Computed example of a mutant assay.
Amino acid sequence: MEITESTVQQLQEKLVQLQQEIQKVIIGQEPIVAEILVALLAGGHCLLEGVPGLAKTLMVRTLSQALDLSFRRIQFTPDLMPTDIIGTEILEEDHATGRRFFKFNRGPLFANIILADEINRTPPKTQSALLEAMQEFEITYGGQTYVLDRPFFILATQNPIEQAGTYPLPEAQLDRFLLYVKIGYPNAEAETAILNSTTGNKQVKVTPVLGAVDIQQLQQLVREVSINEDLVQYVATLIRSTRPDTSTVPYVKEWVRWGAGPRAGQALILTAKARALLKGRYAVVMEDIRAMAYPVLRHRVLMNFRAEAEHITADHVTEVLLSS
C-alpha cells in the first residue's frame, strides 16, 4: 500500500478530526483517549481498567461511531462459552437436493472493533479463545482457519474493585494486550461539564471520520516513523532493567519477581512511534518513550509477594527506572 505525501497530510487532518469527534462525547479523559488511539494506530489491543461509571463502554462505543468500521460488543459472563464468541457449525439442508451439510456460523468476534466488556468475569477457557484471534488475527474451528478482517482491534474492560466471581487474566493473555490503560476519576471541572452535558435534552451526533483503508494506511505509516538508534538502545536498556537477574537497580531486585520480555520493547517502540504520529511528528522523541512506558510495562512487570503486601506496583518500578 503506497502512501503519497498528500495522503499523509489528509490522514493527519483526519486524526485531528477523529479526536475532536470523540471529545464531543467523552469529556476530560484526553490522555486516556490518546492512549486508546495509540493502540489502534500501532495495530495492537488495549485493556481498560476502571471503577464503574467512568464511561469505559461509552468511550469504546464513541470510538466505533467515529470510525467507519464494524463493531460488536461481547458481554463476558461466567457461563459464556468459546463458541459464543468464535461461532459454531450448524446443520443446514439444501432444499433443492435434500443434502445436509455443516455451515460455520460466525460469532461476534468477526468484526473490526470488539468491545470485550468485563473480560475478567468469564472463565479461562473462554478467555483463551481470544488468544489466537489477538495474536494471529485468525480463528481455527473444526480444523479450518478463518482469517479476520483488518483492522482488528480488541478493547477489553475490567472492574478492579469487584473481585467476587472474577477470573484474573493469565499472564500470557495480559501480554497479548499492547497497552494496559487505567482510568481514574475526572477532575472537578470535567465532572461539572459531564453533569451539564449528560442531564439535558441535547443529543450529540458523532460523524465517522476514518475508514478501514485509512486505519491500515496509518498503521503502515506508524512503522515508517523514524527513531534514533540511541533511543532504541535506551528502550533495550530500560526493558532489561526490569528483570531482577540482569538489572543493576536495587529497587527492581528487591520488589520484582519477573521482568518484561522482548515483546515489551517492541510494544514500547511501536507505541512511541504511534504517539509521535498522533502528535503530528514523524520522529520519536524521549517524551514519547517516557509517556508510553507506563501502559506498556504495567502488565508485563510482575511484583513479588512482599511488593503486593506493601502496595508497590509496576508503575512505581517504571517511575524509578525512568528517573534513574
Results as ranks from 00 to 15, higher is better:
M59A: 12
I36C: 03
E49A: 10
P78Q: 08
M81F: 13
T83W: 02
T62F: 12
E49K: 11
P78C: 01
F71T: 04
L80K: 08
P52R: 14
S70G: 07
S70I: 09
L54I: 15
L40S: 01
P82C: 11
I36N: 00
R72L: 00
L41A: 13
G87A: 03
I86Q: 07
L37H: 06
L67A: 02
P78H: 03
L80G: 10
V51H: 14
E49P: 08
T57W: 08
V51I: 15
D79R: 09
I36F: 01
C46S: 06
L41P: 10
P78L: 03
G50N: 12
F76C: 13
G87E: 02
L41Y: 05
L58A: 13
G43E: 00
L40F: 00
L37A: 05
F76T: 05
F71G: 02
D84K: 09
V51P: 14
Q75W: 10
L37F: 04
S64H: 03
L47S: 10
L69F: 01
L54T: 15
D79A: 14
L48F: 06
L47H: 03
A39N: 05
M81Q: 13
Q65M: 15
V38M: 02
H45T: 05
L41N: 05
I85V: 15
L48Q: 11
T77Q: 13
V60I: 15
I36K: 00
C46G: 03
